[in-house]
Nucleic acid binder design. Structure first.
Lengths: 205, 205
DNA sequence: TGCCTAAGTATCGATCCGATACTACTTTAT
DNA sequence: ATAAAGTAGTATCGGATCGATACTTAGGCA
């Protein structure tokens, strides 16, 4: 078992990224968690941009995330909009300022320096190894995958390149299929959609 | 450039580890940073177990780390001892309780679940890919490596398996060479030891 | 002796974070 | 139709994180 070794490497890399995030931030100093929340909101689709989804993604409670989002909003980095169909739900979108900040800060400069020195082939190897590890970790522990919509088993592409989500039957724009979805389910998984006690329709994209 | 992808994977893995660390902790709930500090102190050699080294390793300021260590000491997870040669320096060692806690919590159960399912070969691939990435990141940004003493370019092994550090000329026990050293310098690096304006002797092990 | 530097601590304020309690809204059961 | 249960989100409290700043103690050096 190489778990000690692998854990050590990832912890080390993550610590360096966090230190980077702390020192960077571009003028308006953001905390690492704030930056991660902003980052998520800039790469998720329009059905996954709610406070609850951010909390799930970051592995924090919704109360904790609520404060972080309040700060981001106060700094004019995100905007809130109430869902008209279900008025309990809030949709969050990064402002232009917010998007610029994410683009400047992620990925961190140090990582770019390092990866730029590696061959395409080596980069692929690293990306594949990490993908495999993450995928295995999520599957072994039955965690949410937060994958791209276009890799979801419920995505159907019909005639004339019309995309449709098999869970909600909704039409999807091409753009949406390249973003992270909260309801993403890995294609290889034979498991059926878990329709537990909750009868609410999931809201995938 | 696969940097976006690679960053995403690592950030995701680290978030899961942190969530694990928060929920675990075994009775005495430790914060993720506290656990990481305790972990470091349980794998570093006797010359790298100071507050300053912990701060360097975690990428935090010494003031911040000082508080964390105070809490660990109050919980009887570490012990402090003043260096007799330089009485400014404090040496930190985990107590028996501290060591048990680290052993229980690191690596996290979820990672063990995931890695246990992979073949030896796949585990090696992942470990190698991460090692390469981390090594490259440290070298490209001139960061401290915090590697094992036995992989340091300054380690010399003399007759009768007597180990000696080329920087301090000190004798080293076999045990020490398997631990993390603050002054570790990667073997492949042709760079000379940086003896800058500081005239202090480094304290490798 | 006196100055400089280094290791470590103390304190403050902004933020993080979970726990708890609450409001507003939707869905379900009766 | 109405009550009950469940969900999304917010507010507040207390302990911890974290950087900035200022400080104490100790060693190095002229």
């Amino acid at each position: 078992m190489k778990d000690d070794l692998i854990y050590g490497y990832i912890e080390r890399l993550a610590a360096l990224f966090r230190a980077d995030a702390r020192r960077a931030g571009g003028g308006k100093r953001l905390q690492p968690v704030q930056l991660e929340a902003l980052h998520y909101l800039s790469i998720c689709n329009r059905y996954s941009n709610t406070p609850a989804a951010v909390a799930e993604f970051l592995g924090l409670t919704k109360g904790t995330v609520s404060q972080t989002l309040r700060i981001l909003q106060a700094d004019h980095l995100i905007e809130k909009e109430i869902d008209q169909k279900d008025r309990r739900i809030v949709h969050l979108s990064p402002t232009e300022r917010g998007r610029e900040l994410v683009t400047r800060s992620i990925p961190p400069q140090r990582l770019q320096n390092a990866i730029g020195q590696l061959s395409e082939h080596t980069q692929d190897n690293i990306a594949n190894a990490l993908n495999l590890l993450l995928h295995n970790l999520q599957q072994a522990n039955e965690l949410k995958t937060f994958g791209l919509c276009k890799t979801c088993r419920y995505l159907r592409t019909e005639a004339d390149q019309v995309h449709r989500c098999g869970l909600t039957e909704e039409h999807l724009h091409e753009d949406d299929t390249g973003k992270i979805c909260r309801e993403h389910t890995t294609a290889e998984l034979p498991a059926p959609p878990r329709r537990g006690p909750r009868s609410r329709q999931p809201r995938p994209g």
